[in-house]
Amino acid sequence: MSNQHGHGDHSNEQGSSHPGASQDAELGHYARRVQALEALLTEKGICTQGEIQRAVEETEARSPADGARVVARAWVDSEFKARLLANAKAAVAELGYEAAADLPDLVVAENTDKQHHLVVCTLCSCYPTWLLGRPPDWYKSLTYRSRAVVDPRGVTREFGLELEPNVEVRVLDSTADIRYLVLPQRPDGTEGLSEEELARLVTRDSMVGVSNPHVPEPAPAD
């Protein structure tokens, strides 16, 4: 019965809002299924265990710290920022992030006093994994995919960001071959910080546009 996937006993009422929901502590149906696929693919020489392991490690090595480095560099180097906005893939390659040829193209959208960008993929869950690592569960949720385009201000409010009425909110729906990364605004009061200190203020969520970077702690009074 190849169509009977028997997921009913470990599916979850919240499945629609929780992308990883229907797994349980034991090896469930899908875990076993993936094990079977991997075993067959490697036994038949279609790919090797090593190749799969390398792919796991490559993805695990990516994290929002990569995107944060790019953002911090753009904050301190206006010429780099100009190159980043003009041709993001080439600019991030300067920082050592060489994109494989099969990776989607990247466009960076700059937040300003007048414009705030927010990224979603309503059709799927496209995300600049290359610079941010795996997307968070909420980004893949049906709720976020539904609401981000129609209620972006309500969404950012839930993430703690109240956008002013005079700011133009621009939702980017990554429907095709381009991945979008938001270049958030540099927080006030960060003039004295080093590039590394600045990078630590840049959160994953601020590069998706649902919130802004951290504001630095005020220096302790003498």
């Binding site: 385009v149 129609v150 209620d151 972006p152 201000r153 009425p165 005079n166 133009e168 909110v169 621009r170 939702v171 980017l172 729906d173 990554s174 429907t175 095709a176 071959d177 381009i178």
Partner: peptide
């Protein structure tokens, strides 16, 4: 946004952008 969604509650300058072939 005001032309895409009936009853959009945000300001008139808000935009939604998508990649289209």
């Amino acid at each position: 946004q005001l032309e895409v969604w009936e009853g959009y509650t945000g300001p008139g300058d808000d935009r939604v952008l998508a990649d289209v072939f």
